[in-house]
Simulated scan of single mutants.
Amino acid sequence: MLTLPAELTFTQARACAQQLVQALRQSGLPGQEGAPHVVLDASALQVFDSSALAVLLECRRAALAQGRALTVQAMPEGLHNLAELYGVQELLTRR
């Protein structure tokens, strides 16, 4: 399971996306137990802006490139509302 930080704004977005995508790629390397479904835990996320959506979408792209699905667990309602505003909520599966 991948985990989002407590704060994810423009300032942290690039580094966070790079770390998450690298972890996702490493978990799917041949010879490793790469699950066909990736869960991204957003329960710690408290401070965010639309950059958090960009990070989630980048993780989704990376997962799909590996033939894996991505689900966001415990997505804050405010982030889901932003996804609806931008019309990308259907791209982000949540539970």
Rank of each mutant, 00 (worst) to 15 (best):
A44F: 11
V39D: 03
A65R: 12
T93K: 11
D41R: 05
R25G: 00
L64M: 12
D49F: 11
S50Q: 08
S27D: 10
E90R: 15
L29F: 00
L24F: 00
R95W: 05
L8M: 01
L45E: 08
M1T: 04
V72S: 00
G34D: 00
T9N: 07
Q18F: 13
L91D: 10
Q89R: 09
D49I: 00
R60N: 08
Y86E: 12
S50K: 05
L29I: 01
V55R: 03
R14F: 10
A65D: 14
R25W: 08
L70W: 00
Q18L: 15
R60W: 03
H37V: 02
Q22H: 14
A35S: 13
E84M: 13
Q22V: 03
S27K: 02
Q19S: 15
P36Q: 07
E84T: 12
G67V: 04
R95D: 15
G87E: 09
E7Q: 14
G31I: 01
R94C: 14
V39T: 09
L57N: 04
L70Q: 03
L2H: 04
L91C: 12
Y86C: 03
P76V: 05
L92A: 01
L53W: 03
P76A: 00
Q32M: 04
L53S: 01
P5Y: 00
T71E: 15
Q26H: 11
A54V: 03
P36H: 03
V39L: 14
G78W: 02
L91E: 12
E58P: 04
R60L: 08
R95N: 14
V47Q: 13
R14S: 15
T11V: 09
L53T: 00
G67L: 01
Q22W: 14
E77Y: 08
R14V: 07
L57K: 01
A74P: 06
L53P: 02
P5A: 07
L29G: 07
A83L: 03
A74R: 07
D41V: 04
S50W: 00
P5W: 01
E58Y: 06
A23S: 14
A69G: 13
L2I: 02
G67K: 02
G34P: 03
E90A: 14
D49N: 13
Q73G: 10
G34Q: 03
A83G: 11
A44N: 13
A74S: 11
A35I: 01
T93M: 11
R94Q: 12
A62C: 12
N81W: 10
E84R: 15
Q26E: 12
N81F: 03
R95S: 15
L82W: 04
D49C: 07
Q66I: 09
D41H: 09
A62P: 02
V21K: 08
R94E: 05
A35K: 11
R68Q: 10
V47S: 10
T9P: 08
R95A: 15
Q46A: 10
N81K: 14
T9C: 08
E90F: 10
A62E: 13
N81C: 06
A74Y: 08
T11R: 15
R14W: 08
L20F: 01
H80W: 05
L79S: 05
Q66N: 13
A15F: 10
L85K: 02
S27I: 01
Q66Y: 13
L29K: 08
Q18E: 15
A52D: 01
T93G: 07
R60P: 06
L40Q: 07
E90V: 12
S51T: 00
G87S: 11
